[in-house]
Design a protein around this nucleic acid. Structure first.
Lengths: 254, 254
DNA sequence: TCAAAAGTGTTTCCAATACACCCATGG
DNA sequence: CCATGGGTGTATTGGAAACACTTTTGA
């Protein structure tokens, strides 16, 4: 720190990359069955070199006068139209050769969208952004990311994500961010940031299970989360079964 | 990301700041009592402006060709002589006005020293580095950092650490890093990185308790960690009580 | 012989699990 | 009226907590 003059040394470009998760609701063709929740990841198709036409995380460069969180929110909005999300810093990637354009380090964010963002689905052509299905195979430690055209697998060995068709080191960034998400869901009740304000408990459990891999009896799960949620007077309707009461996250008082 | 030329925009300086925790052993004057373990934090006294003569985290600037982790390890060694430590990224601080010298963002690391570093204590004059006592008052959410001359309190309100006599935004960085440490100790068995290779279970528990605030019956604690440690044939000696078997961390097999 | 911490045994109790069963709705 | 998921009640059980008690050492 001593004798360092900030003009004496070359400085890196600093970027933010955003790993955005959301929940989609897909109506089953069989009306007897309930809708199914899926975990989704937001990617963009790159237009420019390097990795042109390949998929990458949305992201961009830190500008003077803003924080890196502001960078992340700004770039996410510009590139995908997604707004109103919770950000959690999930890593810093600084290998000198990670970007062929030059010396660029990246600060990654885990981002959780609490609304099923129709906006960006409709506008995905304009934005070049796509929500991909996301799943994690716990027993083999493999992440699968797919849409109707493409499929990416992220395998993990010796502490590193193996290279795949995703741009840059984004496979690694996604792997790390998902592991962080899993941790935060299990230990810090962050599931609620993936849900709308009002939700039935079955929906809470579905998403909890998708992310953590922890399957549980519905009745027991209901009791376990009882002190973390509050009842409302709202109910679901139009389902081929008993309506379910809607709950909201309980806000702690001090 | 599109149309961005990395030479078009001004770039920030990037620094690493390191929040280093270690464990000291202090022999009690009363020989009947056992030695007492204390949690310590490593700080340096700044020689230059800004904040000259005030205490700060060790840290320094990212150089071309190295990763930010390498920066952290290099600066820690240069400024304090401390080596062989585990690093965990604990945040990124990028408020534009956080450093009066200019546009400097900081990547912070939680660092755990598994040896009671006598080297840097002896050499602390040369290095201008000091190990401070560190304690966390859970019920008031206050961190206290002190040595024989100085005392710093870190109070937390509305999601932010209140300013104190530590340099820059280092109060905030320390607060965040300690909370991360607590989490990692409770959920991910990271206590072992603060211990030597061989240790009695009482020592493991002491440190676990200091950090987490979780007090427990010694017998019950012993049973709880049984599957995380392995017995050795070594024993402590020269204590005014029954010798304790030394254990080591169990390494998982696959 | 005593204080202090190491270490084991045992009882109690609570919370996680399993599972049976009723409810409400649309098909 | 039946399939489906919502929702409650209850018995079981495994592990956490409490605590009594023995062991081994140096002072």
């Amino acid at each position: 720190m001593n004798k360092y003059n900030i003009n004496d040394y070359e400085r890196p470009s600093v970027a933010a990359d955003i790993v955005t998760f959301g929940i989609s609701t897909e109506e089953s063709s069989n009306k007897r069955h309930s809708h199914i929740k899926k975990l989704k990841l937001l990617l963009i198709k790159r237009k420019e070199q390097p990795f042109a036409q390949q998929y990458a995380l949305p992201g961009g460069f830190l500008r003077k006068g803003e924080t890196i969180e502001q960078t992340a929110l700004r770039e996410l909005e510009e590139e995908t139209g997604v707004e109103n999300i919770k950000l959690i810093n999930s890593g810093v990637y600084s290998a000198p050769d990670r970007d062929s354009r030059g010396w660029i380090i990246s600060v990654s964010f885990l981002a959780l969208s609490n609304t099923v963002s129709l906006k960006s689905n409709e506008a995905s052509d304009a934005y070049n952004a796509q929500w991909f299905d996301f799943s994690y195979d716990e027993s083999n430690d493999i992440i699968r990311i797919s849409n109707s055209d493409e499929e990416f697998e992220i395998k993990y060995e010796n502490g590193k994500a193996l290279p795949n068709n995703l741009a840059f080191d984004h496979a690694q960034i996604i792997y790390d961010a998902f592991m962080r998400l899993k941790d935060e869901v299990i230990y810090h009740d962050i599931v609620f940031d993936l849900l709308p304000d009002l939700f039935p408990l079955s929906e809470l459990q579905q998403i909890y299970t998708i992310i953590t891999g922890i399957k549980e009896d519905a009745g027991n799960f209901r009791r376990k989360v009882k002190d973390k949620v509050e009842e409302t007077d709202e109910f679901t309707s139009n389902k081929a079964h008993r309506p379910s009461k809607l709950y909201k996250k309980r806000v702690k008082e001090y």
